[in-house]
């Protein structure tokens, strides 16, 4: 990233709540595959993580965000990260809809303050801050399909600058049945041949400390409009074992990847949205999946687009994501040495 001293950045721990078994890597061996057009996340037993008095007001997205954050903090032994940064495309859409529904159907009186209070996008990151008494940097990105990527970029920039040494980066989106029907009308999900619309909560701890990590983040770029993707955008020096893309079976989404294939290094193409679903935070699950594959050194066959064999000894994965074919992100991840 530019001319700043290249401090190395690692993903120490990462976890998820999604269509796959929650907070587990069992998808690598026993992936859940579905033909539904809309699948809600499988939630863990929240009671094991949150006290009922504390969580009674919280919507699902907030419980998932808290639990994944708590698990990652605990597993990485970093209870007080120097930054908490979240990406969310739609924010707390369930509470937003509850408030909107009251507003549109019952009028402008007697509205529930809790719905409003928990409708704003930054509720997630600030709740993680409040829950853990974390006073450091705290921010929230909401930019469609690159919301998580933006949060990741913020963390990487601050770590490269030496402003912080670790950061809890999270991505959270939920889809209610009504919002699924709305997004289906817009053509974003629920289309013929498309992977299911899913929900996504992902949390990962980034550190500059090389000890005991899942993988290294070598390079990150974000580019608006494909005509701005230049020769210098892609760090393709050295061998790449696989390229992970957000292919979803939806025509315009997949075309946006094909449009830039010529600029990418040659390597087997992997996908993840058939396991984790389509959502504005899907790319966060892609980064999570890539980190776990690098840790294990294995790419399961189910990830390969060409139906080939599992890839063993995987060392370097290139992760490509885009939002509406307008904004692209490129992430180079490497097995930790």
């Amino acid at each position: 990233m530019g001319n700043v001293d290249r401090r190395r950045i690692y993903i120490k721990r990462a976890t998820h709540i999604s269509i796959q078994s929650p907070m587990s890597e069992s998808w690598m061996r026993e992936p859940r595959l579905t033909r539904e057009s809309y699948v809600r996340s499988e939630d863990p037993q929240f009671r094991e993580w949150l006290n009922p008095m504390e969580s009674r007001r919280l919507s699902n997205i907030l419980k998932r965000a808290l639990v994944t954050a708590i698990k990652v903090k605990r597993d990485s032994g970093i209870e007080q990260p120097e930054a908490v940064i979240t990406g969310t495309g739609l924010g707390c859409i369930e509470n937003t809809e509850l408030f909107l529904n009251q507003l549109c159907r019952e009028g402008e009186e007697l509205l529930k303050p809790t719905y409003f209070m928990q409708s704003t996008h930054n509720t997630v990151s600030s709740l993680i801050g409040i829950n853990g008494k974390i006073h450091g940097y705290n921010s929230t990105y909401s930019h469609k399909g690159v919301s998580f990527d933006s949060a990741l970029m913020d963390a990487i920039v601050q770590m490269r600058l030496g402003d912080i040494n670790n950061a809890l980066v999270t991505g959270n989106d939920e889809i209610t049945p009504t919002y699924f029907s709305i997004l289906k009308r817009s053509g974003y999900v629920g289309q013929e041949g498309q992977v299911p619309a899913g929900e996504a909560s992902v949390a990962m701890m980034l550190t500059t400390d090389a000890e005991d990590t899942l993988c290294e983040i070598e390079d990150f770029k974000m580019v608006y409009r494909k005509e701005n993707i230049g020769e210098d955008t892609l760090n393709t020096a050295g061998p790449v074992d696989a390229i992970l893309m957000g292919l979803s079976g939806e025509r315009s989404n997949d075309e946006a990847y094909r449009d830039i294939e010529g600029k990418l290094p040659k390597a087997p193409i992997l996908r993840y949205k058939h396991l984790f679903g389509e959502s504005y935070t899907a790319s966060g699950l892609g980064v999570y999946a890539a980190a776990q594959m690098l840790k294990e050194g294995t790419v399961p066959a189910v990830m390969r687009v060409d139906g080939g064999e599992p890839i063993e000894g995987v060392r370097r994965i290139f992760v490509v994501n885009h939002s509406d074919g307008r904004e692209y992100t490129f992430l180079t991840m490497r097995r930790a040495e």
């Binding site: 008095m53 007001r57 007697l110 509205l111 529930k112 303050p113 809790t114 209070m117």
Partner: peptide, 17 residues
């Protein structure tokens, strides 16, 4: 019961409703 300021606002709405 350990209620807080947001609960108080909810109770105000409840009293009117």
């Amino acid at each position: 019961l350990g209620l807080d300021s947001i609960d108080a606002l909810e109770l105000i709405v409840m009293m009117e409703r």
